[in-house]
């Protein structure tokens, strides 16, 4: 048996869903991956927050009795910035998904997603290096007409945020822009600061909302 909770390579996951059969099913699916360990199950938002504080990733159902997944995500984003939340939803065109992303979720998966997507999602958000499923994010993107203040990003920072929105990680962005990874990290840091974002996902969400990145934008100035 592995050295539970101490191996830094293992991603500690909490499963939050009010349906026990969903939790047990996921637990079985995830049990065969050595780098993922389910450390707790939660049937409502309160339990999700409680167990989530010490976990790496929380798989969060949105509709739960008592405290729902939205409020639990918001609570975790504020009190446990180290914990990533992936919201889980039955339907793709769910208005609540965008609300959850704004509340600080790092990404979302559908309940019908194949097991490999679930595992990828957990690894990507834990790595923090890239935005999860950027295509899905673009489909959900809802620009807000009332965007009052658009922060001034430099042209380079604009390039970086557009590449983030395409799901590229630091190494890929560095290769695309012919700069070092360190430079990319600096740019990303500045972008997060200027957009008031907690992480890359939130930065992309904000960028869509402010119209800095336009959903469906395909013409890239840097070519392919």
């Amino acid at each position: 048996m592995a050295d539970h909770g101490k191996n830094p390579q293992v991603i500690r996951v909490v499963l939050a869903d009010d349906e026990p059969l969903i939790r047990s099913g996921w637990a079985t699916v995830l049990s065969v991956h050595d780098d993922i360990e389910v450390v707790a199950e939660a049937a409502d938002g309160h339990a999700a927050v409680e167990h989530g504080r010490t976990a790496d990733v929380v798989l969060m159902d949105i509709r739960m009795p008592g405290m729902d997944g939205l409020r639990a995500t918001d609570e975790l984003a504020r009190s446990a910035p180290g914990t990533r939340v992936i919201v889980v939803t039955t339907f793709e065109n769910d208005q609540l998904v965008w609300a959850a992303l704004r509340a600080g979720a790092a990404g979302y998966v559908l309940k019908r997603s194949p097991a490999s997507d679930l595992v990828t999602a957990i690894r990507v958000v834990h790595g923090r290096d890239a935005v999860l499923f950027p295509d899905a994010l673009r489909r959900l993107a809802a620009p807000r007409r009332d965007a009052a203040h658009v922060p001034g990003l430099t042209p380079r920072e604009l390039d970086v945020v557009r590449l983030l929105a395409r799901g590229l990680n630091n190494t890929e962005i560095a290769a695309t822009l012919y700069v070092t990874r360190e430079t990319v990290k600096t740019h990303v840091g500045n972008v997060l600061d200027k957009l008031g974002a907690r992480d890359r996902t939130q930065a992309v969400v904000r960028a869509y909302e402010l119209g800095i990145v336009v959903a469906g934008e395909s013409a890239q100035p840097w070519g392919r």
Binding site: T28, V29, K111, P114, A115
Partner: peptide, 28 residues
């Protein structure tokens, strides 16, 4: 429909994935 059929389909899919995973090893 969302609550009854949608929910049931999610449970069915997740449990099917679990069964598929568990069938790979003799002990599970």
């Amino acid at each position: 429909l969302h609550d009854s059929v949608g929910h049931a389909l999610s449970v069915i899919l997740v449990q099917a994935m679990a069964a598929q995973t568990a069938l790979r090893r003799q002990e599970t």
